[in-house]
Simulated scan of single mutants.
Amino acid sequence: MLLAKLANATLGRVWNEVEERHACNILMLAAASVIPPFENISPMMLADSMMLGKDGDQIREHVDQPYLDERHPGCARVAVPRTILLEDLTEPRTGIKFPTLLEENSNPTAECRDVLYQICNLNMAFSIPFDNKQLNLQVLVGMGYRNMRIMKVKNLNLYAFGLYIQPDSICKKLGSKYASVPVAELKDHPDFYEDLLRENIHMTVRLVVSYNGLSISAVRDAFEKSLGFRLQKMNPNTDYHCLKTFGSYFREDIRIPAGTKIDFRQTCDGQLITEVDGKQIGAVQSKDLCRAFFDMYIGDPPVSVETKQDIAQNVGGLIRRC
């Protein structure tokens, strides 16, 4: 009787396992049949996944959509080197590389690189003053990525981004104010982020496309929605003509396959310049638009909190070496 009961219980457990595995396989097949093919994901879904949603005065994630579960973008910590390094840095989630130094309109020229090699070979510290009229360079101070998740089954990386700041510009405008503030405290210093946005410092955000199905219209829609909300938050009486002009540069004939570089560059006179693979597609003269754009990365709420904090610490490192 004991042997019979034991055999019966064992067979019961085996049968339950078989049923569970069978049900699991059915669910996996069902999920595969409902998940839309990645190449057929609608531009609206892509645009929604790229922006921070607005629900009244609250920022929300799009968790109520049937096929989309948005995740917060991650970030790779970037440490500003004490000596200038010319090697590219890799955003680990996407594997996309970003140059440590960025010259306006391109990567550093051969002349700039020769000077930088001399500095590196002499092992000179980053505190060596730069003549940025000659070396018009910006330094990488933060990296991150944006992705979307399909049915909690597949993560789809849309793009990686890097934020660059010109050391000479940051030293002249914020050096004296924050030189004595410990670097570790800057990430929790709200006035510091406000000053970064207010002072029209030379900054660039580089987006590198990771997903082949990303369209220029999805990029345009995502930026228009997020920038519209931020412009209203900063100045309800702002002129939205600047946003319409900005959106008009993203023409449908522009293709952005994986690997495409999109640069958004702010100048000291409040101009936002947009380039695709080094070719300028437009420029808008608007300090409000510049501030709204970079508010997405160092404002509240940011695209990535971790990247924002890394940017504060790395910019603080630059200021300490002014």
Rank of each mutant, 00 (worst) to 15 (best):
M1K: 15
L2K: 13
V14Y: 01
E20Y: 12
A23V: 11
A23Q: 15
C24Q: 13
L27M: 10
L29Q: 13
A31M: 09
V34F: 06
V34Q: 04
I35Y: 06
P37L: 04
F38P: 00
S42T: 15
L46Q: 09
G53P: 05
G56L: 07
I59W: 11
I59F: 11
R60F: 04
E61M: 14
E61N: 08
P66T: 09
Y67M: 12
E70N: 10
T83H: 09
R93V: 11
G95W: 05
I96Q: 02
T100V: 12
T100K: 09
S106M: 11
V115S: 12
V115M: 06
Y117R: 11
D131W: 10
L140N: 04
M148E: 00
R149N: 10
R149P: 05
I150Q: 02
M151D: 09
M151Y: 14
K154V: 14
N155M: 07
Y159H: 03
G162P: 01
L163S: 07
I165F: 13
I170K: 05
C171R: 04
L174D: 02
K177E: 07
A179I: 14
V183Q: 06
A184M: 10
L186R: 01
K187W: 03
K187L: 08
D188S: 10
P190G: 00
D191A: 12
Y193R: 03
N200E: 10
T204A: 12
T204M: 09
V208K: 10
V209H: 00
Y211W: 12
N212W: 01
A218T: 06
V219P: 05
F223P: 00
S226G: 12
R230T: 03
N235P: 04
P236L: 09
H241F: 01
C242L: 07
C242R: 00
F250S: 03
G259L: 06
K261I: 07
I262W: 01
D263C: 06
C268Y: 11
G270T: 08
E275I: 06
D277V: 06
I281A: 07
A283M: 13
S286P: 03
S286T: 05
C290H: 00
C290G: 03
M296V: 08
I298V: 15
P302W: 04
S304V: 07
Q309L: 08
D310C: 14
Q313V: 14
G316Q: 00
I319R: 02
